[in-house]
Write a protein that binds this DNA or RNA. Sequence first.
DNA 1: ATGGTAGAGCATCTA
Length: 258
Amino acid sequence: MRIATWNVNSLNARLPRVEAWLDDVRPDVLCLQETKLADASFPAMAFAALGYEAVHHGDGRWNGVAILSRVGLDDPLAGFAPGIEPDVDTRLVAASCGGVRVHSVYVPNGRALDDPHYAYKLSWLARLRAHLEATADPASEVVVCGDFNIAPDDIDVWDRAAFEGATHVSEPERTALGALLDWGLVDTFRARYPELPGLYSYWDYTAGRFHKREGMRIDYVLASARLAARSVLDVVDRNARKGTKPSDHAPVIAEFAR
DNA sequence: ATGGTAGAGCATCTA
């Protein structure tokens, strides 16, 4: 089972690239973030032509998440479960694909430690944990994939000193991510490559950071123990960040033996 | 020199 996640930074701008990538990589499941589309504008037919069912949750201008699957797509759920304070944005969608409960998440950026958006980020992470508690079983096969906007460790950023006092590396958000993992999830990429720096999924468009290899590892596939035990591959597809009109994120691929 | 680029949409906002 090949599961991928990709923040495409506008699906409108990226559709030809995503289609070509799907045709090349043929993941069983692809989670998308930052489609920046309303549901009515989601190009479901383009993905159906490639053999993928899809569910999309978006409100048009910003955010927007989707799941594509060629191994079935059942019980879609947009946003947080009933009983949890609803999200003001469209940042979470879940579905069952080939026996795996899949979540595509776009965690709020936070902007700055003293910005209200940072409090929203922490609240959002707590609500995601509550959502998992309410709708999924950590003893079953679960993945939570997406752009977490958190570098889990200092080796997940190109220069820790450059992030002093900034979001993405602060203790409260790392603690919130830890609480998510404590529910029963494994960062399979870091489990495969412990202590190996320089493996990023995002590079700021500005200042030529991609070509200077100045990035951050903020996109990942979190897997429940039952799946993580069968983890056979973890890759960041840096090639998808090259050429004309790339996203500022590269796709992250995780594979699990059946 | 608080810079730089990309996307949405048409003035800025978001990242």
